[in-house]
Design a protein around this nucleic acid. Structure first.
Length: 292
DNA sequence: GGCCAGGCTAGCA
DNA sequence: TGCTAGCATGGC
């Protein structure tokens, strides 16, 4: 068994960071004996990877034999997915000046984003989650994964692998409607997968583009609006200064944090959020965390 | 039973 | 350019 130790930039709280996996990522992550297991595509194949914590470092365990190239690939993926290189010290310093947010931030010290391994997985999951309550969205995501993706054996059972664009592109709209997708959502998911397969959409190429260009390209896709693009910048690319001001969850969290009797508008959120630049993503993330 | 879910598009004025 | 019905179902 291969075990890697990865040092995060401190402060880093593994328990605070993985807490949302237990709530929102149960289809992707299997929790066993202190480790979060999921399948990841390493170059040519999918393997099961366990992610744990030894009190100061991230532990990554893999039962299969890996080549040196695959090990380097895996290290890079885990560092990126678990935001191990994000230094939150300046964020905490800035939040001390926000009386309503300071206690929320302080009690979650070390909480980092967990990103999706690929932009494709992030985009598909976000489109499915549009407008639905999170538990039903998770059901639909699970049905897509289990019905379309590969499976990898793991300790006498199997773990599902998030489907590839070609696998989804081969589906018919009716296949997803049978899983209780509405017609339009089925079209969005399949049409976007087909665009990736035929080369007219290059998600991975967006990694190096500035936020606004990524947003422009994404919003031009049928099924992707501003909220979805912002979620991709947050949970796919880990960009630090996004404010999904229209998001109902963020507005609910602010109402709670500020003790309001009324629902803040998108404009309210934008105005308050100006003080959080250049850390608006993390401010949003910490506020979302109060809803769990 | 009704309304809201971590929205978006199409169709209408 | 701006507004809104409809979507497919679960949870409260």
């Amino acid at each position: 068994m291969l075990v890697l130790q990865l040092e995060p930039v401190h402060p880093y709280s593994f328990s605070a960071t993985t807490r949302r996996l237990d709530h929102f990522e149960k289809t992707a992550y299997l929790f066993r004996e202190g480790f979060y297991y999921r399948t990841l595509h390493l170059k040519e194949r999918a393997v099961v990877v366990g992610i744990g914590w030894d009190g100061g470092q991230i532990l990554v365990e893999v039962e299969e034999e890996l080549s040196e190239g695959e090990i380097q690939c895996l290290k890079g993926m885990i560092r990126r997915m678990f935001s191990l290189d994000v230094d939150l010290a300046p964020f905490y310093e800035q939040m001390k000046k926000e009386p309503r947010l300071a206690p929320i931030v302080e009690s979650r010290r070390g909480l980092h984003f967990v990103l999706d391994p690929t932009l494709y997985e992030c985009l598909i999951k976000t489109i499915i989650s549009q407008q639905l309550n999170l538990s039903f969205a998770a059901t639909l995501i699970q049905r897509l994964i289990e019905g379309t993706g590969d499976k990898v054996p793991f300790r006498g059972e199997t773990l599902p692998v998030f489907p590839t664009p070609p696998q989804v592109a081969r589906l018919e709209y009716e296949d997803l409607q049978r899983l209780q997708f509405n017609r339009r959502k089925a079209e969005y998911v399949i049409d976007i997968s087909r665009k990736i397969v035929d080369g007219t959409l290059d998600l991975e190429g967006m990694k190096t583009l500035p936020d606004q260009l990524v947003t422009d390209q994404l919003v031009s896709l049928r099924g992707v609006g501003r909220w979805t693009a912002e979620c991709l910048l947050l949970f796919g690319l880990g960009r630090p200064d996004l404010l999904p001001a229209a998001d109902i969850g963020l507005r609910n969290a602010l109402r709670k944090a500020y003790g309001l009797q009324w629902q803040p508008t998108e404009a309210d959120v934008r105005q308050w959020g100006e003080n959080w630049t250049p850390w608006r993503s993390y401010a949003t993330f910490y506020l979302w965390d109060t809803l769990i």
